[in-house]
């Protein structure tokens, strides 16, 4: 039996409540209403701090003193600041080198773990360990590993007779850069590996079977089946990985504080050093703001580039 409840209600309703009802029934209005809390959270906790940061970067605010608008003076000063440019170079080097290494090793690990191995679940859990340990803790472990006097690596190599003097891991600019990158890679691999492993497991086995029947070699199977099917998840994983690496702070702060000779200062650590211990909130904010274009381009690249369907299917634009 069909009962037209709407018309019944409409008939019995008075004019004012009726309008309220119509509002309640409008999909657009209700949608807006339901979105409000989320929008408020986003505005309050994301847009506002970001806007405030950008604003601070254009003021000469110091701790304990409200600043005045000075336009782009902070940026002009940074332009001529050699330490800032060192930190930009370091950050790019750190991000590119660590991300490539994390991707290569993470993918390799994911492919290995995707095979049928004994104790599979146990091994997968172990792989996650570096990711689970708080960064500050693992950084302290690395601090000992890289210690100029008590490094276990130097000690072992000396005992093996391979080197005569301790390796100056964090005291030589080149060594220091390599050392912090390695520590970051160690920490970041599990995230890449486990996420890619999840992606690998969504690839239908029938594709591999079809490829095998067509006579594809293992490399061709990887190149023409695994890789294209994995691209969307690679895009997401690498976007996150690049963002995490680019904005890394804890590892550097524990290991070197940006030393030796500012060779490992990242933009994030320099921003903190100038803003909080140094008291120049405006300049610190300006350094943080200069990170935004780099981060945006990384995000745009992955979203508009890596996620293109044609790319995923092995074609060109």
């Amino acid at each position: 039996m069909f009962v037209d409840t709407k018309s019944q209600r409409r008939a019995s309703a008075r004019a004012a409540p009726a309008r309220r009802f119509r509002l309640g029934e409008s999909r657009g209005a209700m949608g807006l209403l339901f979105m409000l809390p989320a929008a408020a959270v986003l505005l309050l906790f994301l847009a506002y701090p970001l806007g405030l940061g950008v604003w601070l970067g254009m003021t000469d605010t110091r701790v304990g003193r409200a600043g005045q608008y000075i336009g782009f003076e902070n940026y002009e000063m940074l332009w001529t600041d050699s330490v800032f440019w060192t930190s930009v170079f370091n950050t790019l080097l750190y991000t590119v080198a660590a991300s490539i290494a994390k991707f290569a090793l993470g993918l390799w690990l994911a492919l290995l773990l995707n095979r049928h191995l004994p104790f599979k679940a146990f091994l997968r859990a172990i792989v996650l360990l570096p990711w689970i340990v708080p960064t500050a803790l693992s950084a302290i472990a690395f601090w000992w590993i890289y210690d100029s006097q008590f490094s276990i690596i130097s000690w072992s190599l000396t005992r093996l007779g391979l080197i005569e003097h301790n390796i100056n891991f964090l005291g030589d600019p080149t060594w220091a850069r390599a050392s912090v990158i390695i520590a970051n890679v160690w920490r970041g691999i599990p995230f890449v590996a486990i996420t890619l492993l999840a992606g690998l497991q969504t690839i239908p086995p029938s594709l591999y079977e079809a490829a095998t029947i067509d006579g594809a070699t293992p490399w061709q199977r990887f190149r023409y089946v695994t890789f294209p099917m994995l691209t969307p998840i690679i895009a997401v994983v690498m976007t996150f990985s690049v963002l995490f690496t680019f904005t890394d702070f804890q590892l550097i702060y524990v290991l070197t504080r940006g030393g030796p000779l500012n060779a490992t200062h990242l933009m994030a650590t320099l921003s903190f050093q100038r803003a909080i211990p140094g008291g120049n909130l405006g300049e610190g904010a300006a350094i943080a703001v200069t990170m935004i274009p780099f981060l945006l381009s990384a995000i745009l690249f992955s979203y508009f580039g890596l996620q293109r369907r044609r790319w995923q299917h092995g074609g060109n634009d």
Binding site: D147, S148, Q149, N168, F169, L170, G171, T256, G259
Partner: peptide
């Protein structure tokens, strides 16, 4: 001693006591 360019606050204590 080599490595002082990397030294943070605790390093000299450790190295001296060792």
């Amino acid at each position: 001693v080599p490595g002082t360019l990397s030294w943070l606050d605790p390093n000299n204590n450790k190295a001296f006591l060792a």
